[in-house]
């Protein structure tokens, strides 16, 4: 069986294609959706049907923005600048922005960085005191990241090899992959998907945590 180093060069053409179509840093200006320039977008709507549409538009905007940003955006608080449109002089209030993030968490497009604080904040009446308001953004879902990790391991012939998370996310070998630079916490939720499917195993604790793919 070829070692990863020997397999590298023969894979170059494929990775090159991936680089140009998939993982090249975005240099084009981000195109905001039309709602972004619509003043009522920054007021939480009283009509529940309209509000549902508003929340899902915000979710779509945030995810598109985060995936397009350079460097990419992985975490967000209700006070982030995305919620302010300076030209329009409108800001989605942090309490309302928090509802947007909660909507995203509910739909699997984000996860609270501190779930216990999030629960407390909700019980305390959704305060915007900063407690529990931050999320990991899932512009790729953990399932999608898991798919990418799995494909990379497969393509580089590293099944049954123990890799550290650091190697996977920060190593030179993955510098052209979309998952390169992924925060450890998000990567762990992706690996958890593979573990549940019996396709990976987590070894060790803390910074040196390793993963073995089957």
């Amino acid at each position: 069986m070829a070692s990863p180093a020997a397999a590298g060069p023969s894979l170059l053409p494929t990775t090159d294609i991936l680089t140009t179509t998939n993982t090249s840093p975005n240099t084009d200006a981000f195109v905001y959706p039309p709602q972004y320039s619509f003043p009522p977008f920054y007021t939480l709507q009283p009509n529940l049907t309209t509000r549902a549409s508003q929340l899902s538009s915000w979710s779509g905007l945030i995810l598109a923005y985060a995936a397009h940003a350079n460097p990419r955006l992985y975490r967000l608080t209700p006070a982030h600048s995305i919620f302010t449109n300076t030209a329009l002089r409108r800001t989605l209030a942090p309490t309302d922005a928090r509802l947007v993030l909660a909507h995203m968490v509910e739909h699997g497009r984000a996860a609270w960085t501190d779930p216990t604080a999030a629960t407390k904040a909700r019980k305390a009446g959704a305060g915007s005191d900063g407690g529990g308001g931050e999320v990991w953004l899932y512009w790729r879902t953990p399932e999608e990241w898991a798919q990418q990790l799995g494909s990379w391991v497969e393509a580089t012939g590293q099944r049954n090899t123990v890799l550290t998370l650091y190697e996977l996310l920060e190593g030179d070998a993955t510098s052209r992959e979309e998952f390169h630079g992924l925060p450890v916490e998000v990567a762990k939720s992706a690996v958890a998907v593979l573990v549940r499917r019996g396709r990976a195993q987590m070894l060790g604790e803390g910074d040196g945590v390793g993963v073995k793919f089957f």
């Binding site: 039309p34 619509f38 003043p39 009522p40 007021t43 709507q45 009283p46 002089r89 409108r90």
Partner: peptide
């Protein structure tokens, strides 16, 4: 659901916006 409220203006007055007459193109939700 024909109107949307905007209370973010500094004059403090509620503005009622109407997506059907404001020329904001809606991207069909995906």
């Amino acid at each position: 659901g024909l109107a949307m409220i905007d209370d973010g203006h500094k004059d403090g007055k509620h503005r009622y916006w109407f997506p059907c007459v404001s020329s904001i193109s809606t991207s069909v939700a995906d």
